[in-house]
Design a protein around this nucleic acid. Structure first.
Lengths: 256, 256
DNA sequence: TCGCTGAACAAGTCTAGACAGGTAGGGCAA
DNA sequence: TTGCCCTACCTGTCTAGACTTGTTCAGCGA
C-alpha cells in the first residue's frame, strides 16, 4: 500500500493489515464483525466493508457469509512457492532469490521438464496442455533460483501462470515484489491445489542452472493450484537440494 | 490448508471422519448420540446433525431413527505408515510388506538412523531420548521392507512405539494385522503429528536391507504422531525409492 | 463523480428448545 | 414363557431468535 493514506477505508485497511502482518491477529483468527469494526473506527459499515474487500483482494483475509472474516496471512512474508504445510524450508540459512527469465509462451510449446523445446512427446506428457481450468492459450513462465551464496545455488523453481491481466505484462515489466502478490493483484487467489514430491537426477540444463554436476540428486516437486471456481492459477516445478531443504507437514491440531 | 477457515459442522465432520478412517471407531460401531457429540464439540445438536448428514452423504455412516449412527466405512485404514495426505503411493504396482525384526529396546540405546548401536553422539542427536510425551523407558522397534518382487525392495520403514500394553508382546507374538490396528487395540489413537521429508544417501546397513549400492539416493521421511493428550504414539522413519514413490498432498477442498 | 453515511432487507450460520416417533430393556401379569 | 406396559434414550422435524455477511438504495458533501 503506497502513497498517502487519506481515505477512511484506506486508514482502516492499513490498520488491519498492520495487525495481521504483525501477528497481533494470528492466522485463522476471526476479525471482529463488520458492525463492531464500524463502531471501533467510527465509520459506517459500508466503509468497513470497502476496507475488508481490499484485504480480501490482497489475500490477507477471507470472508464468509454468516460467519465473519478470517486471517489467511501467515505472519511471515508469504512465500509459498515451494509448497504449503509451512513448506520446504531452507534450514536456517538466509537465501536470496534470483529471477532467471520471464517469458510469454504458448502452453502447447511448453515442455514439462524445462523449456521451450522440440521434444514433442515430452510436451504432450508433461506440459500444461491437459491441465484443467486453464483457458488462456498463453502462459507466463518465470524461472528462479535460490542462492545461499553467490555461487551456491540450492534450488530452481519454474512457475507457469496464465497470461491474463497484468500478469501478461510481467515479461516486459519484470516481477516487482513476489509472484504471490502479483497473482493476488490479478485477482487469482488459490483455493485448493495439489503437490507431488519425489526425487531424481538433474539433467544437463538443470545442472548448469544449479551449478552442479549432471546426475546430481535433487528433490523434485510440482505444485498446482486452482481458484475456487476451478480456474488454473499456477504450476510450480521445483528442484531442491536435499542438503538444504526438508518438507515439513503436520496434521491435526496441537490445541488441546 | 485445508483452509484455516472451517465452518463448525465441517470441523466436526473432519474430526469424525478421521476417527472413522483411522479405525478408531471400527466398522459397525455406533457413534455417540447426537446430544453427546454436541456436548463433546461444544455445539448445538443441530450443528452435529449437519455434520452427521455429511458423513451419511459420504457413505461413511448410516443413521437410524431411535438407534443412532453406525460406521459403514470398511476400507482398510489407509496405510499411513509412510505419511498422511494420501500418502506416498507406490505407483500402480502391487507391493508386499515383509517384517524384518520386532525388538524391545531401551529408548536410550536407540540411535536415530538404524539400530542399537554404540555411536553415542548419533543416539543423542537423533534418538528418541528427547521426544516429548514418551514416558515408557522401553520402546518396541519394528523394521519392515516393501517389495514389488522378491528381490526388488523399494522401501524400508522402522517404527518405534512405546512398549505398553499388548504392544510389549509384539516381539514374542509377532505382528498380526497392521501396526495401526495394534495401536488402536492398545488405545493409542493418533490425534496430531508431524512429518519431515527430504532425501539422502543410504549407508551400508541400509544398502544391504534395500539390496542397493551404498550411496544410492533415497527419499527419507520421519513421521511422529501423538495422542490428544500429548502421549507419544509412534515414530516412523522411512527410506523410499524415488523411482517408485511420490508424495502427494492436497490443500483446500475440491468441492466445486 | 467520488467517498461516505444510514438504513432496510435478504440470506447464511448457529443456538436453544419443543414435540413426535422409533428402539430397547426392565418389570410385571397372565 | 409370553405378551404387555413403562421408561429411558435415540433420531426426525419444526420454530424462534441472535448474529453474521451480502446487497441495494437514497442521500449528503466536497
Amino acid at each position: 500500500m503506497t502513497g498517502p493514506v487519506r481515505l477512511k477505508h484506506q486508514r482502516i485497511t492499513v490498520a488491519l493489515e498492520r495487525e495481521i502482518r504483525s501477528g497481533q491477529v494470528p492466522r485463522g483468527a476471526r476479525l471482529p464483525g463488520e458492525l463492531a469494526l464500524a463502531r471501533r473506527f467510527g465509520v459506517s459499515r459500508t466503509t468497513v466493508r470497502t476496507a475488508l474487500a481490499e484485504l480480501n483482494e490482497a489475500g490477507l483475509i477471507t470472508t464468509r457469509t454468516g460467519k465473519g472474516s478470517f486471517v489467511l496471512f501467515d505472519g511471515r512474508p508469504l512465500d509459498d512457492r515451494l509448497g504449503w504445510a509451512h513448506a520446504l524450508a531452507a534450514q536456517g540459512v538466509e537465501t536470496r532469490t534470483r529471477v532467471l527469465r520471464i517469458a510469454l509462451c504458448h502452453r502447447e510449446e511448453l515442455c514439462g521438464r524445462g523449456d521451450l523445446c522440440g521434444r514433442e512427446e515430452l510436451c504432450r506428457r508433461d506440459g500444461l496442455a491437459g491441465v484443467p481450468g486453464l483457458d488462456s492459450p498463453e502462459v507466463v513462465v518465470i524461472e528462479r533460483v535460490r542462492e545461499v551464496a553467490p555461487q551456491t545455488v540450492v534450488s530452481y523453481e519454474r512457475s507457469c501462470v496464465p497470461a491474463v491481466g497484468e500478469l501478461r505484462d510481467l515479461p516486459a515489466r519484470g516481477l516487482a515484489g513476489s509472484l504471490t502478490e502479483a497473482l493476488n493483484r490479478a485477482g487469482l487467489h488459490p483455493d485448493h491445489g495439489e503437490q507431488r514430491l519425489s526425487g531424481r537426477m538433474i539433467d544437463d540444463r538443470e545442472a548448469e542452472l544449479l551449478r552442479r554436476e549432471p546426475g546430481a540428486w535433487f528433490l523434485s516437486a510440482r505444485r498446482t493450484s486452482w481458484a475456487g471456481d476451478g480456474t488454473f492459477i499456477e504450476r510450480v516445478d521445483s528442484l531442491l537440494d536435499p542438503a538444504h531443504f526438508e518438507l515439513s507437514l503436520t496434521f491435526g491440531e496441537k490445541t488441546s
